[in-house]
Design a protein around this nucleic acid. Structure first.
Lengths: 347, 347
DNA sequence: ATGAAAGCGCTAACAA
DNA sequence: TTGTTAGCGCTTTCAT
């Protein structure tokens, strides 16, 4: 096997044309006679010629590659967004380089290596921290923020309608007769956690229920943090008949802790999660949760980014996708004899 | 902001040196006087110069980019391998382009676009189908097969010691007194499913238990397929006191189906899964499973691939990583009064 | 220690 | 319709 790759000029020589004509053929230009095209294509096939993508990027000044920076690549949410974005990108002839940034410093290094180096033409920033002093988005490069609010005048964004989602979950629990609703959040430095909490408070307010900050516990999205939050709540003698958890893993951890304390779900405490992760319906009890079309978020983000690349002057777009409440077994009507002033752990 | 990026020549002009000297500075060559270096670095900082990665790739003939083709990017197993590989690749100065190939045709297109176009220098093929007539690995390009056996004389591979894992799970159940052990596999066209099943059969044989093909059900890795497999087994009146499922999702589906049939887990049927996925310990009952260090598999795969790129003549390496049995609540000793000849569905 | 010249493989602009 | 000439921004000889 010939290790030296065949170039456009060798094809040209073989076909008896100039290298430019070969270029026209591989770029599907109309300005080539059918006969010439035929000969060039034959030469290409015979030599097994493949255009060199880097040389094309160089000559065109366009790499047809996007960058995606996420906190990690394994969380189902991030992985799904990336999968959606990758699929959509490829439909448009783009590739996606996905990297995980463990911290803001890492994020900045990656922006430099991927964007400033012009290796990629646009950036998908998944769930960046809101503190813009620690993470620097590149100026002058198309950027789509996913899962958080845009933080400047240039960036586009795609996210859920988080506040509305928070309201929906809370309203649902209120409609089931719950008035003491604990709230287990993700890291409050993340936009989505803040927005979901805002929705939670709005729903309480709308129902005339006083917001009780002692019922709010911050977590880190892990089941362990949900478990711990409920332990703390119970230790403090908190009084609640329902829990709204900001993701399904927190919900699952919370349910475990409730069980360990001898509380029944949903008999004594109802639990609502968020995400509708793949096995949400296989937990015991099956999780009531807010479903987001996470693959779609990734697709839309990639679509927006490619539009931004191809139409530079375009004003920033901000997409908000809806969520859907999926009612399963982890939530139920509040027990009427179980008053809001009795601590459920003593039932 | 100047949209036209600053080049090496502008830096050179500003520093009063040739562009080549700037090149030496950014490539950390020794052959530059401290004084010149200083001036160049000042000019770089002042102009905000960033080397163009594509031009460097072009000039060097090396893109420092790897390709990773996976069936999808969302399965926890694939996502973890990719995360591990990406992290390791970056430690070595490489980026990773990850794509999902929905079918073998897609796989071949991607190989062409990513490898043959010389956009990437090596390939990580996750769990490719064993049928090598449908998926064409590139010749002459460093390749590491992950999660399957190497299919040619050139490719490297990283995978679990699947057969041994299958034996371990089965031996464990046998040691708990089970003799009628059903086996729920993944798609049998995948190497790992075959190998795990081989281990299962070996363990039975070693224990003098006849292999009963009616106890083996093929699935597609989904919880639904596990659920369905158990339904079929029960409908057929199959006789078993334990199940070895080839992944945790299948196990979870199986447990659901057993419950629906009124069977207790692990009271009447023990279940062992595979993977130790993140919430395995949060299911009811917590899953007994085989844990694999999946992030490590990704790291090793990337390490091997980069070695293969940097030392072309290197003979193919084949790494096999161990698994670990994690005993939790879904498995228990076989009920002595629950004979091997009674159908558990009638208990 | 530094600079000049020659490409890497391709596309784009202009000629013919 | 086709060919010629210049680069793209950098690295790599080879001089000096």
């Amino acid at each position: 096997m010939n290790h030296l790759r065949v170039t456009i000029r060798e094809v040209a020589a073989k076909a008896g044309v100039s290298h430019q004509t070969v270029s026209r053929v591989i770029n599907e230009s109309e300005r080539v006679s059918p006969d010439t095209r035929q000969r060039v294509q034959a030469a290409i096939a015979e030599l097994g010629y493949q255009p060199n993508a880097i040389a094309r990027s160089m000559a065109r000044g366009s790499t047809r590659t996007l960058a995606c920076i996420a906190p990690n690549l394994t969380d189902y949410t991030y992985a799904s967004i990336i999968d959606g974005a990758e699929t959509e990108a490829r439909r448009h002839g783009y590739f996606l380089i996905s990297v995980s940034a463990r911290d803001p410093a890492d994020f900045n290094v990656l922006v430099e290596q991927l964007i400033a180096s012009q290796r990629t033409e646009g950036l998908l920033a998944l769930n960046p921290y809101i503190d813009d002093r620690s993470q620097h988005l590149p100026a002058g490069v198309p950027t789509v923020i996913v899962g958080a609010r845009a933080r400047d005048e240039r960036s586009h964004s795609v996210s859920l309608d988080e506040a509305n989602a928070g309201r929906m979950a809370t309203q649902y629990l209120i409609s089931m007769g719950h008035r003491r609703i604990a709230h287990l959040t993700g890291p409050l430095e993340e936009d989505c956690s803040q927005d979901r909490q805002a929705g939670y408070q709005q729903a309480l307010e709308a129902a005339g229920i006083a917001f009780d900050p002692t019922l709010v516990m911050e977590g880190d999205w892990s089941a362990t943090s949900g478990h711990h939050a409920v332990e703390c709540l119970l230790e403090d003698g908190a009084d609640f008949t329902a829990i709204f958890a900001q993701n399904d893993r927190i919900a699952v951890g919370a349910i475990r802790a409730l069980r360990e304390a001898g509380l029944q779900v949903p008999g004594q405490v109802s639990v609502v999660g968020f995400d509708d992760m793949p096995l949400a319906s296989y937990f015991d009890p099956p999780l009531t949760t807010l479903r987001q079309d996470i693959f779609c978020i990734g697709c839309e983000a990639a679509r927006l980014l490619i539009q931004a690349i191809q139409q530079p002057g375009r004003p920033p777009q901000h997409m908000r996708l809806p969520v859907e409440l999926i009612v399963r077994g982890s939530s139920a009507k509040a027990n009427s004899e179980q008053g809001g002033d009795r601590n459920p752990q003593f039932n």
